[in-house]
């Protein structure tokens, strides 16, 4: 607890000192450029490939653009009466509502773990840490059986509920709460007669906001990209998120061609909202870094 709160500030101030003062090292720059290239090349590929039609996709030069982007989008939109857009809406719902719910649960649990003293707190936190180490994929099958007993498989709930609790989110929230919410302020509010929930909602939450944005983004991306859970839980393709839906277009069985152009175009469209999300929420991240620097 104490270690985690002292860990953050030095990390931040070091980052700040790099910014603007020291000369850029050519080796580091080259390495970063290489890293950027490594990350951006696949994106460029998707961008180029989604402008090609079926026969160009496998025959023309990989990074040569073509002119069929809008045909592809039209075809994708026409596929089974616009099922693709339904998948997009589903994903937005799973990721949007799921991330909000998950962020709230994380904030509440993290705040409680950081600011309250109760028996078994250490045990709870240790179990939580173990939870961070367990990949979600492993839990998908047990979760399926649980959902089946509740009769909730093949419903929106089956994908929504398991993703609300995120051990990593709670862990992060605890660290943010410990660092950003001074215990004095909480105690002062208590003395003034505010209820515990009131303190959390009106004092702690706003203080933790930059951290919560990070948790929200983190969860949003995790749910947006999640494949295994919805793949196992859902049978009805009108409930599919985009990941499972696109995978289905690739695996149509041996006797049907995989719909590569549709999948590539779909992949491109499906990352756009994520990019947009990051651009919009980046602002809050900056606030977070600056706020840390001032406090330190």
């Amino acid at each position: 607890m104490a270690t985690s709160s002292t860990l953050t500030p030095p990390l931040r101030s070091r980052r700040d000192s790099v910014h603007g003062h020291e000369k850029p090292s050519p080796v580091a720059t080259a390495l970063l450029l290489l890293g950027a290239l490594y990350c951006l090349l696949p994106v460029l590929w998707v961008l180029m490939a989604s402008t090609k039609d079926g026969s160009e996709l496998f025959s023309t030069f990989t990074f040569a653009p073509s002119t069929h982007l809008f045909d592809n989008i039209a075809q994708l939109s026409a596929y089974r009466d616009g099922l693709f857009w339904r998948w997009m809406a589903n994903t937005a719902l799973y990721a949007g509502a799921g991330a909000i719910a998950s962020t709230f649960v994380s904030a509440l649990s993290g705040y409680v773990l950081a600011k309250f003293v109760f028996p078994g707190k250490g045990a709870v936190f240790n179990i939580l840490l173990m939870g961070v180490l367990v990949p979600g994929v492993i839990l998908a099958i047990p979760q399926y059986f649980l959902m089946a007993q509740l009769g909730l498989t093949n419903t929106y709930w089956a994908v929504f509920l398991p993703q609300i609790i995120s051990p990593y989110g709670i862990y992060l929230a605890r660290i943010y709460a410990a660092a950003a919410v001074p215990t004095d302020v909480v105690e002062a509010a208590r003395t003034d007669g505010s209820s515990e929930l009131g303190i959390f909602a009106r004092i702690a939450m706003p203080m933790m906001l930059p951290g919560l944005v990070t948790i929200f983004l983190f969860q949003f991306v995790a749910i947006w990209n999640n494949f295994m859970l919805p793949y196992i839980m859902l049978g009805d393709d009108s409930l599919f998120p985009i990941t499972v839906g696109l995978n289905g277009l690739l695996n149509q069985g041996a006797s049907a061609p995989a719909l590569y152009t549709l999948v590539v175009t779909g992949a491109l469209l499906s990352v756009l909202p994520l990019i947009l999300m990051f651009l919009l929420l980046q602002r809050f991240w900056r606030v977070d870094l600056a706020a840390g620097a001032v406090k330190a």
């Binding site: 089974r80 099958i141 399926y144 059986f145 089946a148 007993q149 009769g151 498989t153 093949n154 196992i232 049978g235 009805d236 393709d237 009108s238 995978n247 289905g248 695996n251 149509q252 069985g253 041996a254 006797s255 049907a256």
Partner: peptide, 27 residues
């Protein structure tokens, strides 16, 4: 009748067997 498109062949069977074992969720 409502069609739910599945991944061809093996994945659909695996999914069906999981649903049968779980007692609900099969089409």
């Amino acid at each position: 009748v409502t069609v739910s498109k599945q991944d061809g062949g093996d994945p659909a069977v695996t999914k069906l067997l999981t649903a049968i074992n779980a007692g609900s969720g099969a089409p």
